[in-house]
Nucleic acid binder design. Sequence first.
DNA 1: CAGTGGTCTAGACCACTCC
DNA 2: GAGTGGTCTAGACCACTGA
Lengths: 273, 273
Amino acid sequence: MLNQVNSKINPKKNLQKDEKNASLLQKNGSLSPENASDPRLPRYLQVRDDLLKRIVLRSWAADEALPSEEKLAAEYEIAVGTMRKVLDTLVNDGIVDRVRGRGTFVARAAERSSMLHFIRAKGTSRDALPVAEIRAMTTAIPPAAVAEKLKLKPRDKTLYLHRTRSFNDEIVLSEHIWLPLARFRKLQKYLKSNSPPFLYPIYESECDVLVSRAIDDLTAKPLNRANAAVFKLKTKTMAICVERLMLDHAGEPVEWRSSFVPAERFQYSAEVR
Amino acid sequence: MLNQVNSKINPKKNLQKDEKNASLLQKNGSLSPENASDPRLPRYLQVRDDLLKRIVLRSWAADEALPSEEKLAAEYEIAVGTMRKVLDTLVNDGIVDRVRGRGTFVARAAERSSMLHFIRAKGTSRDALPVAEIRAMTTAIPPAAVAEKLKLKPRDKTLYLHRTRSFNDEIVLSEHIWLPLARFRKLQKYLKSNSPPFLYPIYESECDVLVSRAIDDLTAKPLNRANAAVFKLKTKTMAICVERLMLDHAGEPVEWRSSFVPAERFQYSAEVR
DNA sequence: CAGTGGTCTAGACCACTCC
DNA sequence: GAGTGGTCTAGACCACTGA
């Protein structure tokens, strides 16, 4: 199902009408068994799910316009008004941007994810970003509490990462990350030869996992011995612990991480609605 | 303009078609000068603004249905589809709830404001809520930093509150609150004879101020002498400081507060999108 | 049963962008 | 000027609620 689709073919114009840009819904409007989202769902939600899949599978490059409302409506055999409703929901979720007179575009991951820099360290900014380093990567059956958060079955494995961020050679953040292995096998391979500054865009580009929502729980805790050693601080130094559960657009848990920042360096912003 | 409207008259049924339920837009569709939102705005936004004003002024009780889409559309002389778009935006902002077969209702403030309990203290819950106490209330010209956040002119006054929350006779939270006096005069009077558990619903009921969005900035700070005294803790005890700017639906700043929680008691949740 | 909101259609006219 | 999305209309049929 999750064949990689090479979007680099004809990235700009003169799109061939080939398989890669075809609706995953069958032409007659019913659903192929493999793509069966509940057919009792309203049409616009079925179309939304289908279109979202195509976006996640990179059917269109970031700077390439989707087909116009009219063309998409014709392709899915629905009215333009209904297609507009589909696109409106995608705009609302930050998946696409629409520009009058130009077209509809896949939103860039960097612009989409306000989640990238919610935890900051004092004295740092977008320009002076702490350097990420992965200090451990293994596959493992996670602690029960993590397995529960990720809705895993008892023996399901995870990809575990221990990552730090440093600023001026001083470690300012230490985090433990668990990812359901089933969806993140490609990430393991990727991280063996790459050190990306952010992980979320890699989840998307390597694993076709598009993160949509996060729930953060913050508490203050004294550092235990292991974490204190990472920071080269005394045990029991006060730190802030941010526990974050990430969900995809279907509400399925995608990542659980707990991040520690020594209290003096801690800074965090959130917009609440 | 902000006449109090008594919504207790005919709270259930048999609504008279009196002034209180009339559109604030003029019948011919143009705008009265006092209510002039920009007439170049699309019709659905003008209607939205008008309807929102009526909701804030409590033209309908919380358990009373608004007129149906059809009736509202007729009243504003727009198509039902456009009225639906208006109501959709209000649903999206959590202002109203729509129930198929029943009608459209003003959302309850308590359900609307997920902001009510984002900062918690360890060991507390909705059932065991810490008790709020207002320990100081004055009108004052705020510090420059606060005035800037609230977009006040140099000599604009604010209502200043110092409030604490206690749990089992132990103070777990101390907060300093600044409100633009112009919009909050009635609050001052109200708080002289009431001790509500939450302020936001009072902003709404007493001052017709409906809060829509908050931006929180969290940092860890050692307590200064004054704050340490409030908690009866040593100076320099580590605490978390949450600075919150609240905005109304128009994006105008409505409140600025800085809350302190001793680190050991600190707990905070946020949903990030 | 009448009345409500939820979905969907098939048009219209406009503002804006790019060629 | 051709093509895009933004607004708006005027219907239709449906699912659900409450009397």
